Computed example of a mutant assay.
Amino acid sequence: MAVTLQQIAEAAGVSRGTVDRALNNRGRIRPEVEERIKRIAREMGYQPSRAGRALAMAKRKIRIGVILQYMETPFMQQVLKGVLEAKEEVESFGGTVKIYEIEGVEPEKVMAAMEELREKGFNGIALTPSEDQLLRARIDQYQEEYGIPIVTFNADLEDTKRLCFVGQDTFQAGRTAAGLMWEMTGGNGQVAIISGQVANPGLISRQKGFTTEIKESFPGIEIVDIRYSYDDEWVASKIVEEFLELYPELTGIYITGHGVKGVCQTLQKLGKDKTMHVIANDFLEENLKWLKEGTINFLIGQDAAVQGHSPVIILFQLLFDSKAPEKEYQYTDIVIRTKYNMG
């Protein structure tokens, strides 16, 4: 049975009207009393009615902005689906969610979108950041000066004032890839890394995790080169051709982001698709095809839909219920797939 305001009032030793003012932030109540009432309501499992929540939303004008970068990539299209699901949920209660889609790495466009959201009275922002000092400063400014909470997702800028991060623990994902490479190579040989955008914090972290674990735990493996495809399949294919020319003894390739199609097609064309050890990321249709064929040995996955959905809901809960996120780092699971457990 649903918990009523009267039951909360009796448990708190106050009137029903005081409970109503506390739970709906209507003022005329001491802060310590308001906090005690909210705590008791949470402990009792109180849930406002849908109609009541919609009415409160209309009064508060909760507006959340979502800014996505790297939108030309298939993975971010999957993240967008999660954002759209959260948008539908929030707007069913009378809130507003505005989405900005940016291709590539464009911190200036991110900051312009942030400013537009601020000027229009939006009171929470979720964004996928890139490595940029001005963007770091802007995130801090929005939190400290404007009181607008920022949630980062998919990639993180840890030493900022952002509220929390939702996404993969990319450093651990990189370490996981290093362990898998050790298993395949027997702990010896030359390997190379193909990354995507230079300024993508998530890819930087995967790369660091991989190189750190190799150096600390597997000294018999030599990382001979690191190149960037900028999420371009043609560039990725040319990198592979150059790797094989420069390093004829190369035994493994770790792909931290996109470029899988270019890498695998080139390995197949050069007859290296069954002998080269390849580890890539994300359970995308193209990647799963190469996993099934055996050109990719391992795929390391993350939950794209959660990365899109959770940041919006975290901001909604903060703005509507004053419920802070439970953890600063809300990591999605690191999942490993081979052609034998594709599902």
Rank of each mutant, 00 (worst) to 15 (best):
M1L: 11
Q7T: 06
E10T: 05
T18E: 15
R21D: 13
N24A: 07
N25L: 11
G27I: 00
I29H: 07
V33Q: 05
E34R: 00
K38P: 12
G45H: 04
S49D: 05
R50L: 12
R53G: 07
L55D: 13
A58W: 14
K61P: 10
K61Q: 12
I62V: 04
I64A: 04
E72G: 14
P74W: 00
G82A: 01
V83M: 02
L84M: 10
E85C: 05
K87I: 05
E89V: 15
G94D: 08
G95N: 06
V97E: 00
I99P: 09
A113I: 00
E116H: 11
E116A: 14
L117M: 03
K120F: 10
A126C: 05
S130L: 03
S130K: 10
E131C: 10
Q133L: 13
Y142E: 12
E145L: 12
Y146N: 09
V151E: 04
A155C: 08
A155P: 07
T160I: 02
L163V: 02
C164V: 02
Q168K: 05
T170V: 11
T170S: 13
Q172Y: 10
Q172N: 12
A173R: 12
G174N: 09
A177E: 01
G179K: 14
G179H: 14
G179V: 12
L180H: 01
L180N: 01
M184R: 05
G186E: 04
Q190N: 06
I193C: 02
I194P: 12
Q197F: 10
L203Q: 08
I204D: 06
T212R: 14
E216T: 11
F218W: 06
R227Q: 14
Y228G: 01
Y230R: 14
E233D: 11
E241W: 10
L244I: 03
L244D: 03
L246W: 15
L250H: 06
I255D: 06
H258P: 15
L270S: 02
D273Y: 13
H277P: 11
A280Q: 10
F283C: 15
E286C: 12
W290G: 03
W290D: 06
L291A: 06
G294V: 02
I296Y: 03
I296S: 03
F298P: 03
F298I: 00
I300A: 08
D303A: 10
A304H: 00
Q307H: 01
H309M: 08
H309P: 08
H309Y: 07
V312L: 00
S322L: 12
T332I: 01
T332A: 03
V335Q: 13
T338F: 00
